[in-house]
Design a protein around this nucleic acid. Structure first.
Lengths: 143, 143
DNA sequence: ACAGGTCGTTGCGTTGGCTAATGAGATAAA
DNA sequence: TTTATCTCATTAGCCAACGCAACGACCTGT
């Protein structure tokens, strides 16, 4: 049986990649963002847990100076707080303010709304396929 | 039956969105690109079929001037050709050169390689789920 | 105490995005 | 046919985000 046909897997890989990239693209575009995409990305990271500038720069794959500026833009409107580390004066601990958490919450709701709207047009079977697919994709990415 | 449970759809929407965005993110970061991302995106569109500057700008959701510059950057190294339209002198028909097609081919191979590698670890059933899921996602995005 | 390393910030050049304005060509009306 | 208008692509000029280089502040090891 052709279950492991290499060519088949390659074409599937292409299809999966294209689909995911298109979805991500649409989500980013359709959301007329309150916060700039790269700034929201930082907020989302800080929503997980407090971090330093260097950690954020590494996670977001940008240089330390770029992240430093991004953080400054989030501190200015009061979405992020700076705290100096007790044991190491060089470090700047960053965390969300209540306002920052609220921005993350509403922005996520808006992004999910776009997808929800489109999924409502699907059949129960199609949604079940997607449900199983997301579980598989998560395991693949986490790898 | 709970097939249309609104809450269920919302949580699925969130899961789908997150999965797709994570995959897209990983693909973008892991590929140390030969061609800049926004330029490759244009090449990929032209690989589908020849288009005009305006069409590309619309598809890629950028302004006409931005697309004009991007096209110029692709024409300069000989990846894209300009042809004036026979019936309408204002239009600039754009198409890939052989070199352009080669760039698309190798770049896609490199991007797909990451995904292929991970999909090889899956079972035939899991791959089938992904195959059906991509078809569904395409229809959802095209909507 | 001091030399070297790390963390964050600032200065500067590059690049891609936008809007406004321009030029070339099509199109419709007088 | 001539003129006005509209469309497409490009140019000009500005802004935002990035990276690199350089710096100041602060730890760490000798």
């Amino acid at each position: 049986m052709p279950a492991s046909d290499p060519d088949d897997i390659a074409s599937l890989a292409h299809a999966v990649r294209i689909s995911c990239m298109r979805v991500a693209r649409r989500v980013r575009f359709d959301a007329d963002n309150t916060v700039a995409p790269h700034l929201f990305s930082v907020l989302a990271r800080l929503a997980e847990e407090p971090r330093t500038v260097g950690e954020l720069a590494c996670i977001e794959k940008v240089s330390a100076p770029s992240m430093s500026r991004a953080v400054a833009q989030l501190v200015e409107p009061g979405l992020v707080e700076r705290h100096s580390d007790e044991h190491d004066g060089r470090l700047v601990r960053l965390s969300l303010t209540d306002a920052g958490r609220e921005v993350v919450r509403t922005e996520r709701a808006r992004r999910d709304a776009w997808m929800t709207e489109r999924l409502e047009g699907l059949s129960a079977e199609e949604r079940d396929v997607l449900r199983r697919a997301t579980a598989i994709l998560e395991s693949v990415v986490d790898l």
